[in-house]
């Protein structure tokens, strides 16, 4: 009964494409201590790797390769992933061991006896890198922190690359940047206004025609302060700290946009509709914290109005916790 209820909820939330999709496999590569002078934290490498592996195994039937299994598989293919491997090397490794999602990352000790962990999820299907960051107090129990990471990984892998860090309830001030022009944009705004959102003036003047279903693709990949969703080339540029990595410029643009709106805006939501306006991808950025908080790869509907209504349902409802389902 609970399963049926969950499926109905997910259908309402616009995840119909993900339901029934074959189970994706996850491989956990490594999580390393990035700090050079704090070797006493090295023990956390194996603690985090094994805790996350165990946490995923405990609640999910998704095929999982542990870090040891990954190493063995890579060795069979005569591949050694170094601690400072590049995104290109990660992609090659994922391809060789035929995994859908390859997870790797690092942590650094920060003040107040805490650590900041940065994890990357490489998806072979979309050839993209999703990066998210979490912090944890070492004096507190590590398991809630591990469970939080597990939930992000499993939701991302199970729901077709969806990430929702926070809900965006009715009443919030939102700036909508879309590929829709003219009266279609009004049709889109209608649901948000009816649902009680305060829609700001971003893009709602006449020059909306500067963004169409083709050019909106420029916003498909987003780099924010702590989270990002990138292509291999952008991820590689950021890894190499190359000028082609627009991370700093984009972060600066979000800061200036926030300032220009008198620091009185909650979320910038970028929506890329397809040519027929029947489906859309979404990127949501919390402009105050300048973090990517919402990724949805595809919401479908028979009209712009229906797509926007599904968006609102997702904005107001947290993703089902993989822990509660078990």
């Amino acid at each position: 009964m609970k399963i049926y209820a969950a499926i109905i909820l997910l259908l309402l939330l616009g995840f119909s494409d993900a339901i029934g999709a074959p189970k994706q496999s996850i491989s956990i590569g490594f999580i390393i201590n990035k700090s050079r002078d704090k070797k006493d934290y090295d023990y956390l490498e194996s603690v985090l790797q094994s805790s996350i592996t165990t946490s995923i195994t405990n609640i999910s039937t998704i095929p999982l390769n542990s870090p040891d299994a990954v190493k063995k598989e890579l060795a069979k293919n005569k591949i050694v992933l170094k601690r400072n491997c590049t995104p290109q090397e990660v992609r090659e490794a994922a391809k060789k061991i035929k995994t859908d999602f390859f997870i790797y990352g690092d942590f650094i000790p920060i003040k107040d006896n805490s650590i900041k962990i940065t994890l990357h999820i490489y998806s072979q299907k979309t050839d993209s890198f999703f990066t998210f960051t979490e912090t944890a107090l070492l004096s507190a129990e590590i398991y809630p922190f591990v469970d939080k990471i597990t939930a992000v990984i499993l939701n991302y892998a199970s729901w077709d690359g969806t990430y929702i860090a926070q809900t965006i309830p009715s009443g919030r001030r939102i700036a909508l940047l879309t590929s829709l022009p003219d009266e279609e944009l009004n049709e889109f705004y209608l649901s948000f206004m009816r649902a009680g959102y305060k829609v700001l003036f971003i893009q709602n003047n006449a020059d909306s025609d500067k963004i169409d279903y083709k050019t909106v693709g420029a916003f498909f990949y987003i780099t924010t302060k702590n989270n990002s969703y990138n292509s291999l080339s952008i991820e590689a540029a950021c890894y190499a700290e190359s000028p082609n990595c627009f991370a700093d410029k984009e972060d600066d643009a979000f800061r200036r946009l926030y300032d220009s709106l008198n620091k009185n805006v909650d979320c910038l939501i970028i929506v890329g509709f397809d040519k027929n306006d029947k489906s859309a991808w979404i990127r949501g950025i919390d402009l105050k914290s300048r973090n990517l908080v919402w990724i949805n790869q595809k919401i479908t509907g028979s009209s712009i109005y229906e797509v926007s209504k599904k968006m609102i349902q997702q904005m107001q409802t947290p993703l089902p916790s993989p822990f509660k389902a078990n």
């Binding site: 025609d209 050019t215 979000f254 946009l257």
Partner: peptide, 30 residues
């Protein structure tokens, strides 16, 4: 209304276009 068309970003290379668009919105706010 048609005058606004002149303000649209010219460079459609994705990252430049993206930053230009953010800048356009910032200028519009001002």
């Amino acid at each position: 209304l048609n005058q606004n068309k002149g303000a649209q970003p010219k460079n459609l290379h994705s990252d430049t276009f993206k930053i230009d668009t953010y800048n356009l919105e910032i200028n519009k706010a001002a």
